[in-house]
Write a protein that binds this DNA or RNA. Structure first.
Lengths: 130, 130
DNA sequence: CAGTATCCCGGACGATACTG
DNA sequence: CAGTATCGTCCGGGATACTG
């Protein structure tokens, strides 16, 4: 993908992929795709996330311009998170990827079972000698 | 994405995202997208990858049915890796995601600079009190 | 050539406690 | 309510050495 392309852009691609690959980012984006949410609501919706990791995940997404943080000066404080235009745009290819996995779930599972069950010797396709 | 969906499929989505997010997987897929490659050639093309990590990355992709491993019974051994049909199919949404980051590279960078340069107090949008 | 085995380190992440 | 601070654990991944 990055042959002959701007190395800086390739770095950004890696960074965004690493972000998507972490434990909570995609879940948070999916929750916000349905509309803005408060911090505590997100914490409840994204089952299993710690306060710390939710904060870190949201900060990183905010830094990249994917989510916007809005503070309402009430007491107790109320903070809402929402996808930005960039974030909604980003969610399109992300959901496409998720859709592909859904569509090919059975293919992947079948491949895994085959791989895990095959004997140590029959472990590879044999090519014709050069 | 996973509301009301099969939890097993959601798990698979997370697993595939985690794989894409690791350090070498996407690079390997991109290299193989241009055609089959030998182990040693991949090692040279994917700059910086260790022998160990290239092996682990390829094994994981093979297990998921994304790449196929072919051994030529010569001496010294010759092993070729190629994308399967499933792998070529997978590379489509992956490249779409990469394309999005390329297209929005400047937006992301601008957002980061804004975030990193703003003062600690002006750090958030202020909403109207509920 | 194409691996596997072993050791080791740094960072991701969870748990917990504290605060405006 | 929405954080920040601190500590401890686990494991991803690099370096190196060995092998069919």
């Amino acid at each position: 993908m990055c042959d002959g392309y701007d190395p800086a852009k390739c770095t950004t691609v890696s960074e965004m992929l690493a972000r998507l690959g972490d434990k909570w980012t995609v879940l948070v984006i999916m929750m916000l795709d349905d509309g803005p949410q408060r911090f505590s609501d997100l914490k409840r919706m994204v089952v299993g996330v710690s306060q710390r990791m939710l904060t870190l995940t949201l900060r990183a997404l905010e830094r990249d311009g994917i989510v916007e943080r809005t503070v309402y000066p009430t007491v107790p404080p109320r903070v809402e998170y929402a996808l930005t235009d960039l974030g909604r745009s980003f969610s399109v290819p992300v959901k496409a990827l998720g859709g592909w996995v859904f569509a090919n779930h059975d293919n992947i599972q079948t491949a895994r079972v085959r791989f895990d069950n095959r004997l140590p010797d029959s472990s590879a396709k044999i090519g014709k000698a050069a």
